[in-house]
Nucleic acid binder design. Structure first.
Lengths: 193, 193
DNA sequence: ACCTCATTTCGATTATCATCTAATTAGATA
DNA sequence: TATCTAATTAGATGATAATCGAAATGAGGT
């Protein structure tokens, strides 16, 4: 669970204009000037807020001729609201704690003291924990050349090709024209409790 | 649905320190210095954040000798997270829209053009809509003398005693030593769709 | 009454950010 | 190519807010 992303989500939603935009888009897509009109604000201001909303993956856009339509990404909305809601439930909190300590044990087992990966776990659950640990050093939104990504992985383990492939298979990253980028956490392979 | 409260909730949670405090309190109550210690911050900073969290009703406190223990208010957490989550669901959005327009019609029917309440609706659902409209002019967190509250209600309807009593019955407000104060919306009588 | 400890208030500092106007980009159409 | 429209960028301004050290408060215990 990435604290930064959660904070970014809440910080972004903590603005009346952006909340109103989200409410508007919940009813269906709109283009920029329509939003500006309904909210009584200027287009630059709307662009500014849509950028913020895009940063947290909450809106995406599609172009039709000259006008750009903005869409709400419902799955992100549901997922991020859910994280805090779970804290209201003692059972869920206990689960999260257990998962955290279990996680930590696995990491300690599979990494040497100076941070190298000893070997790739065979068990799926542990393997995913290891991958989630590895990608913590990658930046969201940054585009990586294949070579650059290989170098990054190599600092943990020599078999960078296998690990790089696993990143794709398990949807931690996606590739486009030989360029790699992190997916948002909602898309990652899930470690079921 | 109060936009301001929702924004205040998200704005308050959009800070790493406060999120971390909420995560800590989710595991159980803590006193101030314990929080400061765990987060590596000074007591004044913790006080500052706890004030913010109290403003949105997310924490409350209890004193034991010299030390103050802070508790998480789980129901508020669950409720506020839920509002945005509903926007991810087309069905829910439709419900909200219908409710809004229905609401507006009732208000138009029971109020004169210059804002007076014609009469108190007999039907429970409509009655609650009217009450929710009336309390919009009251400030959250403000303490009202009974006389002051009567005066406020009188600007809408002469039978202030009945309405004031209804405010209490339906948990829009509570009374303590003759002083009245608004409850948080989570406690209000619900208008079931 | 005095002393101690936890918390809160005050004031200052620094950083972030919402909004606007003016200027620029980018597509589409004529 | 010239022109229209929608969107974005740049720069400025004003407001809000996170954090800290120092001082003040307040409740117990000696």
């Amino acid at each position: 669970m990435q604290l930064n992303r959660l904070v970014a989500f809440y910080k972004t939603m903590g603005d009346p204009t952006r909340i109103r935009i989200v409410f508007l888009l919940a009813k269906g897509p709109l283009h920029g000037q329509a939003i500006a009109g309904k909210l009584g604000l200027t287009p630059p201001t709307i662009t500014h807020h849509l950028n913020k909303l895009r940063e947290i993956n909450l809106v995406y856009q599609r172009r039709d001729k000259n006008t750009v339509y903005f869409y709400l990404n419902e799955s992100v909305l549901k997922h991020q609201s859910g994280v805090l809601a779970k804290l209201a439930d003692k059972e869920e909190v206990k689960k999260m704690e257990e998962q955290n300590s279990e996680n930590q044990k696995v990491i300690e087992n599979f990494f040497t003291r100076d941070g190298k990966l000893k070997n790739i776990p065979a068990q799926r659950k542990k393997k995913l924990m290891v991958f989630e640990h590895l990608i913590k050093g990658l930046k969201m939104g940054k585009k990586y050349e294949e070579k650059e990504l290989n170098e990054y992985i190599k600092q943990y383990h020599e078999d960078y090709a296998t690990i790089r492939r696993e990143f794709i298979i398990n949807h931690y990253m996606y590739r486009e024209n030989g360029i790699y980028e992190l997916n948002p956490p909602e898309m990652w392979a899930k470690i079921e409790g």
